[in-house]
Amino acid sequence: MTALQTNLNSCNDLNHPQNRIFKNVPPSAGLPRRAGVGFKAEHASDVFENADPVSWFEVHPENYMVAGGPRLKMLSQLREKFDISLHGVGLSLGGWEPLDKAHLAALRALVDRFEPAQVSEHIAWSGHEGKYLADLLPTPLTTASLRHLVDAIDQVQNAIGQRILIENPTSYLALPQNSMPETDFILQAARQSGCGLLIDVNNIFISAHNLGFDGRDYVDVLPADLIGEIHLAGHEQDADTSDNVLIDTHSRPVSDPVWALYRRLVERIGATPTLIEWDNDVPDWHTLAREARQANAILDGLDATAATFSQRAAS
């Protein structure tokens, strides 16, 4: 049985046909509803010896879009033992140009080879007119932008043959042309394209702080049936302290208010695959594992009567 058939046969929580325009995309296998972490080569020996309490790993596919060599070999070894998630940072779904065909083909090749339990991308853009910018830049929240995003998601899902998740952005500023709330924008993108959501709680906390809204209001309107994964990470105050702005650095432990916002979300939607992202000033494995343990403790403590994914899917 292929991984795809397994996906189709499994009772998948994300496969809500309601409001879908594109109904022919099979859901992904889905990750364990436990803590995962971003894979770092420096943790390889710890991970291969004993990854407890981490049960899955996330990588950026762009780091593996090479013909061969040690990186792909290490990813093969990782995949032999764990579920993996491919979390893209370079498709530029929120750009205004056609998707890069070569990039899409490279992603497809990685999906075919490694059979990830989940594929995700950002609502952002990272290049324009041949210029690669290596960052997640803000997408205008407009109806034209939304249409373009939905088309882009559809192209990706058709190219790799499975449903993807899209991640809510971090905001440092509000673009003047924005014409709808971000929550409307991402929910419509998901409903219209048939994709799911990857909710980065740290991004919500940072955006709420930087733009002056209540992160709880954002979290509370997110429908459980669309959320396939959660991200948690650390942030930092900008070096320029005259402007009280938080930067999404992925360089620190998850902060207490982000844990609180996370708890609020999963208490309502039930256990959800949760990734700890730590990409700069990467700590030793022990420190990272402690963050994962904390997420698992929250997931373990959820009220057993809270809606589970399978209940949601059946309803």
Binding site: E62, N63, V66, R71, G127, G130
Partner: peptide
């Protein structure tokens, strides 16, 4: 000056 977009940042 760089206007070449590599598939991977590793090859930037």
């Amino acid at each position: 000056t760089e206007n070449h977009r590599p598939p991977s940042l590793a090859l930037y």
